[in-house]
Design a protein around this nucleic acid. Structure first.
Lengths: 113, 113
DNA sequence: CACTACATGTAGTATTACTACTCATTGATC
DNA sequence: GATCAATGAGTAGTAATACTACATGTAGTG
């Protein structure tokens, strides 16, 4: 399972990575790879547009920096971003509990009422 | 939390409902409402197209039936559908474990290496 | 008669994450 | 000295998904 779709929870995950401190896009991708044990390996075409989206939404703040002849765009959480992360954690709890319950085999049940 | 997006796991959930026995679309929506305690309340514009998709994919088999002057399209799992449901359960386990881990607060961490 | 529950469906839209590129620098390898 | 991998940022175009908002019709209840 490599490029597993994060399906709507990508934003929350990016915010969670940034909670630990400011990071640039490439570093975020690597942090995700490391923290997931290689399970989550996002392509740049997923991560960069997502960061721009979060920036437009005011959940992260970005600034250019330079290191070793390489320009980096460093992102950090805003207050709204922190709030959004809290909300997302709650949403995820509810969502995952609901899906887990629905996916669990039910009693073979009465079919047509 | 009402029309919560099932985000890519709708198909698996529909298959899980049908695992308990054949059902028609409307009954599936109701089963979902009941089994989720009202949390999951899908609009018809989500469920019917999804069922058609599953049928096209060969994961369910459909047939018309008549009850009380009402025509119903009754869906039941195929062998492929049963297999797909097993796969989806595994995928969900991995996926939810990964998201839960990534969403968990990390050590405040070194930022820019 | 009007309204609700039952029952199925479509058209059009917004969002999302993907593939497949482009561009540029640095450091290691041949 | 050339070439390649890693670092770093980005876009264009596409496919999939679930949504809103509608159309259509029957049965039963107040």
């Amino acid at each position: 399972m490599k490029a597993e779709a994060l399906k709507g929870h990508l934003d929350g995950i990016l915010l969670a990575v940034l909670e630990a401190g400011p990071r640039h896009g490439y570093a975020i991708m690597e942090a995700l790879r490391v923290r997931s044990g290689g399970q989550v390996d996002l392509p740049t075409g997923t991560v960069y547009p997502a960061l721009h989206r979060l920036e437009r939404a005011g959940l992260v703040r970005a600034s250019w920096s330079e290191a070793g002849g390489r320009r980096r765009r460093v992102y950090e959480l805003t207050t709204a971003g922190r709030r959004a992360l809290d909300t997302e954690r709650g949403t995820w709890q509810d969502f995952s509990a609901a899906v887990t319950a629905l996916l669990r085999p039910a009693s073979p049940a009465a079919s047509l009422p």
